[in-house]
């Protein structure tokens, strides 16, 4: 946790201190002496071969760290896992990003990486759901799919000669609307099987992007292409291009109720608290935090969730949770 900027009173300070000490005592001691700072030499056994990975370099015959972090060893490979860095994409990661430019046949997307990602027109499903060649007309209509500053969700496809490519070949990817995008340090989001979550009791969607961008929004029913297509065919041909993206009439009809808005804000604030405390962000922890905020004797109002009292509570709760799982394991 870096420089927590909260005004705590004396009791809160003591409680937070105690919770953090407890957390520290629970963390595994296995790697505690493996932390290095820049230019620390890493002890290695040169006799049985060695592969220098990320964050290391050779200097005067010694292996030296180039970033601050924790030394990891996998067989012969020695690398340093850095404490804080920008997001490093891996193929298959699910990410949330913001469109910054509409270029010929592609969108440029900001994803918190050192370069902008590219989403090609050809690597995303067209709104009408038909597989076909992209025509010049499609290219002219690109702005009807994504515009500048739209928040989108996509998958990392891989590195090509001109940078990082994304793809959005499913209905679950695409434009995100009616919600909030949060930015947390990317190392707090771990890669898991499931990054899309539908919190049914609140009617909201949660997308934990691997790049540290998190989307909290109203639940959108993912519609199957083909089914929608057939329904549409029977109705009207011209409405086809707007299947997934709200037409003005639809927008009026599907007005977000206030309860949903409130749960979006509550969830978003729960994530903000977790990220200031530097806890890993998983759907379980988020839900626990949300439940904690609404189950207390006097429900914590949404705007007070970012205050110091709730922050201390969350820290204590996390300490208790971890000690419990530790005992079980």
């Amino acid at each position: 946790m870096r420089g927590l900027q909260l005004s705590l009173n004396q009791t809160q300070k003591v409680r937070l201190q105690r919770a953090l000490e407890k957390l520290e005592s629970l963390s595994s001691k296995a790697n505690s002496n493996a932390s290095v700072i820049v230019a620390d030499s890493i002890p290695v056994n040169h006799e049985d071969g060695l592969l220098k990975g990320h964050g290391t370099t050779e200097f005067n015959g010694e292996v030296v760290a180039t970033v601050c972090g924790v030394v990891e060893r996998v067989n012969k490979l020695v690398y340093v896992r850095s404490l804080r860095a920008r997001y490093k994409p891996e193929v298959g990661d699910i990410i949330v990003g913001r469109v910054i430019e509409v270029a010929p046949k592609r969108w440029r997307v900001e994803i918190n990486y050192s370069h902008d990602a590219v989403l090609m027109l050809s690597s995303m499903n067209l709104p009408d759901g038909i597989q076909r060649r992209r025509t010049a007309l499609d290219e002219l209509n690109m702005r009807s799919i994504f515009e500048e500053n739209d928040v989108i969700c996509a998958e990392v496809r891989g590195f090509q000669h001109d940078g990082l490519h994304l793809q959005a070949r499913s209905q679950k990817y695409g434009k995100l609307g009616r919600g909030q995008m949060l930015t947390v340090p990317p190392y707090l989001v771990k890669r898991r099987k499931q990054h899309f979550h539908n919190l049914e009791q609140y009617g909201i969607d949660l997308i934990l992007g691997c790049n540290g961008f998190i989307w909290v929004g109203e639940h959108v029913e993912v519609t199957d292409d083909m089914v929608v297509d057939q329904v549409n065919n029977s109705e009207q041909q011209s409405a086809k291009s707007d299947v997934k993206f709200f037409s003005p009439g639809e927008q009026e009809r599907s007005y977000t109720p206030q309860e949903t808005r409130e749960s979006i804000c509550r969830t978003a604030n729960a994530i903000r608290v977790l990220s200031t405390l530097g806890f890993n962000i998983t759907v379980e922890v988020i839900m626990e935090t949300v439940d904690l905020s609404s189950s207390l004797k006097q429900q914590v109002p949404i705007h007070e969730m970012l205050g110091s009292e709730f922050c201390v509570l969350v820290a204590e709760k996390e300490a208790a949770r971890r000690s419990l799982t530790k005992k079980k394991g």
């Binding site: 700072i37 820049v38 230019a39 964050g55 370099t57 970033v67 601050c68 972090g69 860095a85």
Partner: peptide, 11 residues
Amino acid sequence: LADAGIPMRDL
């Protein structure tokens, strides 16, 4: 720079 996790030869 060290805080930003940028690889460096030395401090």
